[in-house]
Amino acid sequence: MTPETEARLLARLDSIDAKLDYVVERQELVEDLIREMTPVAREALNAMAGQMQTWEDRGWFAMGHALIGLFDDLANAYGPDDVHELRGHVVQIVDTVRNLTQPEVLDLANEATDVLHHADDVQPVGPWGMAKAAGDKDVQRGMAVALEMLRHLGQASAHAKSGAPPRERPAPRETPAPSASPAPSASPALSPTPEPASAVLQGEVVEWNGRRFTGEGFLLDTDTWDEALAAEMAKGLGLTLGPDHWTAIRWARQDYMAHRASPNVRRVANGSGLGTEALYTLFPGTPGKTIAMIAGVPKPVGCV
């Protein structure tokens, strides 16, 4: 061994010795700390156990347990898709909860609970008791409210079933276009004003004598009618118009102008005073339609 290596070794040992000293010193410090901290830690542990005991007594853990069970159940019953869907409804849900927690609603719920608390005092009632109770003003109000709720429930369920938006107020029924307006557009099928049913069904317009007719031969614009036209139409139908024919035709026209609906056989028979039998003789086959055709009014739609 050379003196250099010896010196290097010694120097190394010195450094190790110094490090050992340091480690021992730290160890002693830690031991001191533990020695000092043990009573404190024990105290803390005891306190914590006591706290837990209190929580346990209050049922927090049982509840937590139950909550975990609840989440399990939820996870079993609903898939991720459901939750995703739920996200879309959060606003609605919050709205509902807010509405449900309005003071007046809570008051009502409280009152209902009160009634349940006093349920022991209430006697069972049969049908007669119900009938008697129905005379009570408060019960009547309650029934009205319940009925209203039932109505909404029904609407909501119908809505849910059909998937359609909630029922809207039906649009007011359109009345046939007044005759003063210009002739409806050339294509009855596309025209927004309701045409006589026959025109829509036939979907075609025939021009004759400078006037427009439906495919069945009913005049489209009743204002283009005159008596000369009527006579010509009747001739084409194989009829020679006598005074009684004219009575029926003029009455039908006048009735259409007054009510905007073509009269059918019974109305013409009674209104013109000619009687049913005469009409079937004057206009054989289909008196109602034939009269309407010659009078230049739409095809009648009634059944009697």
Partner: peptide, 10 residues
């Protein structure tokens, strides 16, 4: 040309 329609037929 006469009226090109028939009376509503049976």
């Amino acid at each position: 040309m006469s009226f090109p329609f028939a009376a509503p037929p049976a």
